[in-house]
Amino acid sequence: MPIQDADERGAQAPATSTSFQLRGKLFTAVTLLPEGGVPDAGFYAALDEQLQKTPQFFNNAPVILDLQAAPALARSEDLRRVVDLLRERNLSAFGVQNARPAQLAAAQEAGLIAITTGNDTPLRVPRTEKKGAAKPPPPKPGRIISTPVRSGQTIIADEGDLVVIAPVSSGAELIAAGNIHVYGRLRGRAMAGAYGDARARIFCAKLEAELLAVAGLYRTSDSLEDELLGQGVQAFLDGNKLCVEALG
């Protein structure tokens, strides 16, 4: 018999018929616990104050009224009024919990459903002071290298400056998002402003570099003036020109 039933059902459900799917959905609702009697102006003032601290957080939040601490809130018109006033504040009350039998009847009359499942958790309100004060981000840390950079090695400072307190051999590469400082002999390649920062500069104590580049504009050792070799120099962009100048 059951098998036959299944067969019949299969036969009677053509693919084109109007159908639907049922899916479970989990979501977080905010529970509001009025205390004492029917919520008054003081209640709404306190609520407004709370909402103003985190305006985005409660926007259109589904709300359950917990009637545990408000036995006097038992008339359907009072509940309706609460729902309306909450809606004005972009809070969508849809149910009640911990309601006494009389309150339950009034709530159903006011279009609120009885919620009996679910656990309460403390509401994690984002810290308001973080949002309020938009402090500038701390300076990017950069990298400090104190051992010789050898031929074939590449040192990358993804953020900020790259500082090398050692020689950089020919065939080595330095790449930094910001400035590059070399306090030893620079014989390798140095590329500052690797992500396009045209304000980045290269500073080095003794220039013998194979290549200097700032924001993609480069000069090779061939095109560097001879009198700069071995000198302390800086390289920077002036418009579309990579300038290399002696320091001091």
Binding site: T147, P148, V149, S151, G152, S169, S170, G171, A172
Partner: peptide, 13 residues
């Protein structure tokens, strides 16, 4: 010398 420099880099990495 350049190759030795490369090798020193490998020794350190």
């Amino acid at each position: 010398v350049r190759d030795s420099d490369r090798v020193l880099g490998l020794l350190n990495s």
